[in-house]
Design a protein around this nucleic acid. Sequence first.
DNA 1: CTGAAAGCGCTTACAG
DNA 2: CTGAAAGCGCTTACAG
Lengths: 350, 350
Amino acid sequence: MPSAPRRKQKNTSNKRVSLAMVAAHANVSTATASRIINGITNKASEQTILQVKKSVAELGYRPASIGRALRCQESRMVGVLAASLANPTMSAIASSIEWALRDEGFIMSLCDTHQEADIQDEYLLEMRAQLARAVVIVGAVQSPLLTDYRNSDMTFVFVNRPAPDQESALYVGIDNYQAGVDVAELLLQHGKKNIAIIHASLDQTAAEERRRGLLDRLAKAGIHSDQIPHAHAEGLNHLEVGYQCMGNILNMAERPEVILCLSDMLAFGAYRRVQETELSATDDMTFFGFDDNPLNPWIANWLNSVGVPAELYGPATVATLKAIWNHSPPTTPTYLSHKFRLNKAFTEVK
Amino acid sequence: MPSAPRRKQKNTSNKRVSLAMVAAHANVSTATASRIINGITNKASEQTILQVKKSVAELGYRPASIGRALRCQESRMVGVLAASLANPTMSAIASSIEWALRDEGFIMSLCDTHQEADIQDEYLLEMRAQLARAVVIVGAVQSPLLTDYRNSDMTFVFVNRPAPDQESALYVGIDNYQAGVDVAELLLQHGKKNIAIIHASLDQTAAEERRRGLLDRLAKAGIHSDQIPHAHAEGLNHLEVGYQCMGNILNMAERPEVILCLSDMLAFGAYRRVQETELSATDDMTFFGFDDNPLNPWIANWLNSVGVPAELYGPATVATLKAIWNHSPPTTPTYLSHKFRLNKAFTEVK
DNA sequence: CTGAAAGCGCTTACAG
DNA sequence: CTGAAAGCGCTTACAG
């Protein structure tokens, strides 16, 4: 054996190494090999353990997760359905989740639902076919299967946008209502009362909550919702919706001081519109968004936003998953505490 | 049977439906059921086909991909390793690939290598353990396993950044050298000769190619590389590298007219630096980048860039994969033809 | 301490 | 036209 040592070639070759090969190489049964590889070492002799470990190393063996998954009826895969990977906030969240998942030995399968119910359902089916261990939905939309699966054995966690139809579903993200309140509070502190709101469709729970928070707080200060112009357009692409809405606002008789967008992407769209039609107007307006897009400090310094660093989502999401599997799911939503990112012009006013 | 029709409940219940159940329900063997479900209908009676299809519908059956994968030694999963999901260009490309893959019945497993060799290798191992059908690397870095797997049975496609160590590897993306040439050409046409280049580490093939193209073309016009100041910093985060580099440039005795960044992310970093230290300077400078970040037209209008719409990557990548599987791989790199996106200020000069 | 055997969900020669 | 059987890579009672 020690002769012609094939210089550490491991498994550069073509064929996959199976457990059976390792077992044969170590002169033990697959049962024994399996146990040792899985760390069940209390029922094996020192001797055998060494032999198996050596074989694993020499052959460059790595268990085919698929075999285990089939046998255990449970894969190490977690499906992550993101509403829109084109939104940097969401892709940053997805990346954070993947990171945290990987840490626990899971592998993420990421899909983009494009905010459409039937695509989301298609992926939900697929996740089931893949025996996904759990499904994390970053920005869920209402869909038939989402309702159907409510009571199935599938583990769900909703991130960044609460479940559209189910109060009790597990949620990880900011407290959208409170964030709305906080923004309103800040504006009031700064004496800004001339506010316009830009929003897309409100059937997404997050947006609606944000708006409720805003309006409730403003109402308490005597500013009622009919004094607050709303610009709204249909469409799934927030960039374009924001662009359209801003067109309407620029046409208004009295210009608002504050353009309050229910998402940063809406604000980006609005900003472009202003730049294209009336560059100077940018300076007279204060822009507010939600989500704190990670690119904001670099290229959208004009935007004030409220949100949470994307890196915090992954650990919180995985912690929630683990809690479920330990049968001690959180009883309340997991709120990540949001912070403001304010641009200089705005903070100076203070 | 027709009584108590359980109103279309399909598989809302807990248990997964297996092929065996469908077969039993249809009174046929699993072999027959399997054939019919897979569309091998030429060897089954009309009658049986109907029965099976009915059972499938009634039970809400969807094949567990894992069973098929194990049996066929090949899953429907394609691993996509992205260098940095925080970069909107890359996440948009990933999204496009996922879309195209899905169209062909594949499912994407997306990972973020954070540009690090050992993470990339970890994922490469994992993809093998998952029996991934292929691995698409969006922004590959040099790593030991990448070399090891070169001659294995694994299918590789390199997107957006050519394989670091292998000329002949399949590549889908822009022609980086030519893009460099084209940018230089454009600058010359506009009489801009006072240029500074910002770059991160050049061990990434794409950046180096871009730079070669630029310098070659400029040299032909009599501007030699020693007349072109280079700002460079180490680090994986292009935003921060760009920020640092711009600091150096702002300290230069003679200010360049054109800040030529080898990626848009670098340009974002540079822009922030200028904004922070000397706001007005932004107007005197022309910024150029590469990749055409999808957010540019919305919030980074000051940036000129060259690239390809992200949506084009997916179809091209999948076409390449299919060609490989048909044993007719493209013999040359698949170049997507890049276009300029120029801001108004720059085009007006023309 | 160790191994033979069953079985997870599927497909596919092979035999009838 | 259809089915019994083997087998993909693994794990896990069960028996020894």
